[in-house]
Design a protein around this nucleic acid. Structure first.
Length: 463
RNA sequence: GUGGGCGUAGCUCAACUGGCAGAGCUCCGGAUUGUGGUUCCGGUGGUUGGGGGUUCAAGUCCCCUCGCUCACCCCA
C-alpha cells in the first residue's frame, strides 16, 4: 500500500501552534489598535470575478493573479475531443480569480453597498491574498494582508491617522528603529511636469527613482540616462530628490524652487504640510517620520500622499505601506469617492520580531499542567483543574497515567510554566504540589493559593 | 518570465581521482518506581529527491525531470 508523499504547493506554509500563537499575538495587537480608532471589521470572499480584479494592478500584476479555471462549461470535452470545444476567448476558460489584495475588493464593496454604509467608512480587513509569483525569502504565494482604510473623505487627517496608527502599532509591538517615510504622488507628478518630462516616461522614471535605496544615486542616474532624459532634466530631478531635512524645511524648499512652475506639485506640498501637522497633533514624535522624495510605492492607484515604514536593522525593506487612492472606487461606480489607507506586511513584521526577539516568552499557551498521578486521584485532579480554570487560568490535564517524568517532559517541551501534581496525600488535603518549571521551586497549595501564587509570579489571568 | 547555486537520517552536514552511507543535534528508552532542563549508557531512524544511462562497481560521472534557494523583474 503506497503512501502519498506529503507536500505543499510552492509558496504556501503550515502554521504550527507555536507560530500561530505568535501570529495571533501580532494580529490581536493590530486589531485592538484599529478598533480603538473606530475601524470596523470586513471580510470578502477568497474568489472574485476576474473582471473585478483585471486592470487594477498593471501589466506585471495582471500575470500574477491566480486564475480559477471555469467549471463545468465543457472544458472536459477538450480532454476527449478537441474539435468539440474551441476556445475563442480567455473568458471561456477563466471567469474568476483569487483575491490579489484587499483594496480592490474593498472598492467593490463600497460600490455595491454604498447605500447601506455610513461614510466616512472606516474598515479593517485581515485575510490571505494570493499571487502566482515565484517564491523567495519573505515572499509567498499565499500570505496575509492586514489593511485599514477610510473611504469617503478627502481630509488629510484620515491620511495622518493611518500613518499614526502605523506608528502606534509598531511601537506597541516593541519596534524602536523604524521610520515613516512620506511622499505624495501629486508632488511627484508635478515634479516631472516641472522638469518637462513626458507622461509616457513617467513610469520608467518612477521605477528608477524608487530604486534609490537599492542601487544608489549613480545607479539611478544610469537608469535615467537609459530612459533618454536630457542631462539637465536628470540634474534637476536628482538634485531635487536629494533635498533632505525636517519635513517643514523640505516642503518650504520645494515651494520656493518649484511653487510657480507647477500647480500640482504645490498641491502635493500643501497636502503633506497638512498631513504632517495632523500627525504631530495626533502625537507622532517629529523624529519618527520624514519626507522621502524617492518613495514611489508601486504603480497602481495612488493619487495623493503615500507612506511606508522601514526598519534599518535588519534591513528587510518596508513593514507597512499605503496612501491615498481617490480614483479607484470610481472604476466600479462611475463617480469618484476619495479613500486612503495602509497595509501592514504582517508576515514581515512577524519575521522581524522573531529576529529581534520581540515576542514575549509565553503568549497564549497553557499556563498549568495538572498531571495524572493514578486512577484514584483523577477526580481530585480534574476538580483542581476546574477550579483553576474558573479563576481564568489556561489549564490542561494529562490524559494517561504514566511516569511523572514523562509528564514533566511534556510540560517542558510545550513551555508550560507550571505543573500541579495531586497524589493520594494531596488529594486527601485538597491541595496540590505546585512546581514552577523555570525556577524549580515547589510549593503545596490549594487552588486559591495557586492562583495567588501565579498572580504574584507573572500577573496572569489578564489575558 | 530570465539567469546562477544546491538536493545524503526529523535538523545541520561528512564520505579522497567512482570502491562497505557516517557524525553531531533531535527523537525514543534506561541510569532515577512522586518531578523536566544538565550528565552518562543504549536504541530507532536512509529507495543518497525521482527516472534513465556509462561502469565489475555510482551519493560521486552523463542525460532528463521534480524540488529548494539566490539574483533580476515585481512586490508585502
Amino acid at each position: 500500500m503506497g503512501v502519498i508523499k506529503p507536500s505543499l504547493p510552492k509558496g504556501t506554509r503550515d502554521f504550527l501552534p507555536e507560530q500561530m500563537f505568535r501570529r495571533q499575538f501580532v494580529l490581536e495587537t493590530v486589531r485592538e489598535t484599529f478598533e480603538r480608532y473606530g475601524y470596523a471589521p470586513l471580510e470578502t470572499p477568497s474568489i472574485e470575478k476576474l473582471s473585478v480584479l483585471s486592470g487594477k494592478y498593471g501589466d506585471e500584476g495582471e500575470n500574477l493573479i491566480f486564475k480559477v479555471l471555469r467549471r463545468g462549461t465543457g472544458l472536459e470535452k477538450l480532454l476527449r475531443d478537441e474539435s468539440e470545444f474551441v476556445v475563442n476567448d480567455f473568458g471561456q476558460l477563466v471567469d474568476e480569480a483569487l483575491r490579489y489584495d484587499l483594496t480592490v475588493p474593498l472598492s467593490r464593496v463600497i460600490a455595491m453597498h454604498q447605500n447601506e454604509l455610513t461614510f466616512p467608512f472606516k474598515r479593517y480587513q485581515i485575510q490571505p491574498v494570493w499571487r502566482a509569483d515565484r517564491p523567495q525569502r519573505g515572499r509567498y504565494r499565499e500570505f496575509y494582508q492586514c489593511d485599514i482604510d477610510t473611504v469617503g473623505t478627502p481630509s488629510m487627517l484620515a491620511d495622518a491617522e493611518a500613518a499614526s496608527i502605523v506608528f502606534e502599532v509598531l511601537s506597541t509591538l516593541g519596534f524602536q528603529n523604524f521610520k515613516l517615510k512620506l511622499n505624495n504622488r501629486k508632488l511627484l507628478n508635478g515634479l516631472l511636469n516641472a522638469c518637462e518630462i513626458a507622461g509616457s516616461q513617467a513610469t520608467s522614471v518612477f521605477i528608477a527613482i524608487d530604486k534609490m535605496d537599492k542601487i544608489g544615486l549613480d545607479g539611478v542616474r544610469n537608469e535615467l540616462k537609459a530612459s533618454e532624459l536630457s542631462s539637465t532634466q536628470i540634474q534637476t530631478l536628482l538634485g531635487t530628490l536629494e533635498i533632505e531635512g525636517d519635513p517643514e524645511s523640505v516642503l518650504v524648499k520645494l515651494t520656493d524652487d518649484f511653487g510657480d512652475r507647477d500647480p500640482q506639485l504645490l498641491t502635493g506640498v500643501q497636502e503633506l504640510q497638512e498631513m504632517t501637522a495632523c500627525m504631530l497633533e495626533l502625537g507622532v514624535p517629529i523624529d519618527a517620520f520624514s519626507i522621502d522624495l524617492h518613495l514611489v510605492r508601486g504603480l497602481g492607484y495612488y493619487t495623493g500622499p503615500i507612506h511606508e515604514s522601514v526598519i534599518t536593522e535588519p534591513n528587510i525593506g518596508s513593514l507597512t505601506g499605503g496612501g491615498r487612492y481617490d480614483r479607484l472606487i470610481g472604476m466600479f461606480l462611475g463617480r469618484d469617492i476619495p479613500a486612503c489607507g495602509t497595509a501592514f506586511g504582517i508576515e514581515r513584521i512577524i519575521d522581524v520580531m522573531s529576529q529581534l526577539d520581540l515576542f514575549p516568552k509565553q503568549t497564549n499557551g497553557t499556563q498549568v499542567l495538572v498531571t495524572a498521578f493514578e486512577p484514584s486521584t483523577r477526580a481530585a485532579s480534574l476538580s483542581f483543574a476546574g477550579e483553576l480554570r474558573k479563576a481564568g487560568l489556561r489549564v490542561e490535564t494529562y490524559f494517561e497515567v504514566c511516569k511523572l517524568k514523562k509528564q514533566f517532559t511534556y510540560a517542558h517541551k510545550k513551555h508550560i510554566p507550571f505543573v500541579a501534581t495531586i497524589g493520594p496525600d494531596e488529594a486527601s488535603r485538597g491541595v496540590a504540589s505546585f512546581k514552577d518549571m523555570e525556577t524549580g521551586e515547589q510549593i503545596v497549595a490549594d487552588p486559591m493559593g495557586v492562583v495567588q501564587r501565579m498572580v504574584e509570579k507573572q500577573g496572569v489571568g489578564s489575558s
